[in-house]
Computed example of a mutant assay.
Amino acid sequence: MERIERIQIGKRAKRKVYAVDLFCGAGGLTYGLEKAGIDVRLGVDIDPACEYPFSANNAAKFLLKSVEDLKAEDLERVFPKNGIRLLAGCAPCQTFSTYNQKATPDDKRWWLLLQFARLVEEISPELVTMENVPRLQDQGVFEEFLGTLQNAKYHVHIDIVNCEEYGIPQHRQRLVLLASKLGPIRLLSPGEFGAERTTVRENIADLPPIRAGEMEETDPLHQASILSDLNRKRIEASKPGGTWRDWQKTLVADCHKKKTGKTYPSVYGRMCWDEPAPTITTQFFGFGNGRFGHPDQNRAISLREGAILQSFPKDYEFVPPGQPIYKKTVGRLIGNAVPPRLGEVIGLSIIRHVDTWMKNRRRTSAGASANA
């Protein structure tokens, strides 16, 4: 399916599907859904740092509220009465991520998915979508969520998506769930979406070069973290795709000299120009936090580069103009986001599903009239 066809699909269904985005974060999912032609009316999140990027880049309103405190009427009032309703969201995934080995069901965030299920039961929207880490499938809380959908007679489709196959320039696997009361539903394949694999070079090579600790004048988000003298020597000794095992012993961290540390080669590394990036985490702006070294500049990738590799557009705003930029906060917003391009894939899959349902209804209605 070519790009022009994707745009036309979105236009055909414009204002027919209305959405609320729970756990909306900085707006990655909403941005993609809106690009697909879905009218997102509201984003909900408990993090105040999400309000500006969500509102500045999307047409939807933002509600600062915990999903635990959200009532059905809070959402029902934003859905038009004559529309098809979509309840979307990505419950916090940190508790289920392979990067978090300490998370347990004692973590309050573990159970937020059941708050999503509660709202599905109370509102009974025609459509539901959820994005999360693949490991969620192995948890009982996910089985409970599925049970809620199945008991409510939803058709459910689950996919484990390799994001790079959809043109997102990073190695990132995500669980995508689509559910519909209108009939069977599925995610568009990469071929149907018209995706092509893309690389680090194709996405960030044209950004102005900067040094560690510097900020580019015209884009404050294009700034790189300061490097210690030791880390400067380490990155100078690093090559794209290599590991700390390539260094002189004097540069290797003490923890990696131990037997328990020798199995962790994917830190203190550089990205490769002609490959997708590694998974963009909330700590991508730090050289020692993963393979986040720039392919040839002696620094970690900038906040802007991380956002682009998450498939955010190059002008996506995360901080109000003139306000200070806190790397930990912006890094968290970017790393936790649903890649906007994946949001577009989800949105267009929903649009196609609704188009098919509407065509079938018209055929059934025309057939009934002919037989009358």
Rank of each mutant, 00 (worst) to 15 (best):
L333S: 02
C163N: 02
P313E: 03
E121Y: 10
S228Y: 00
Y18K: 10
A253K: 08
P278H: 05
V176P: 09
T356I: 12
T356R: 15
I346T: 06
R361H: 14
N371K: 14
Y154T: 00
K35S: 15
H157F: 14
D254E: 15
A300E: 03
A277Q: 06
T243I: 06
S311Y: 04
L178W: 08
G25V: 05
P105H: 08
K327E: 06
K239N: 12
V338I: 12
S228E: 04
M130N: 00
S180A: 06
Q297F: 11
K16V: 10
P220H: 04
R361A: 15
V120S: 08
G331D: 02
F318A: 03
T250V: 13
G25E: 00
I210H: 01
E236F: 06
A36L: 08
E164V: 11
M130Y: 03
Y154I: 01
G241C: 01
V338M: 06
N336P: 00
A300Q: 01
H155T: 08
L112Q: 08
C93N: 01
E305H: 04
P169W: 05
F318G: 03
K71A: 14
Q101Y: 11
D47L: 13
E144L: 13
A300S: 13
Q170N: 00
E5K: 13
D219P: 05
K61D: 15
E217V: 07
S66C: 12
R3L: 15
L149M: 06
L187T: 05
R211S: 14
P276K: 06
R299G: 13
A372C: 12
R299L: 11
V141W: 05
T356V: 11
D315Q: 12
P320D: 09
G367V: 06
E122T: 02
N57V: 10
V44M: 10
V67Q: 04
L187S: 03
Y99V: 09
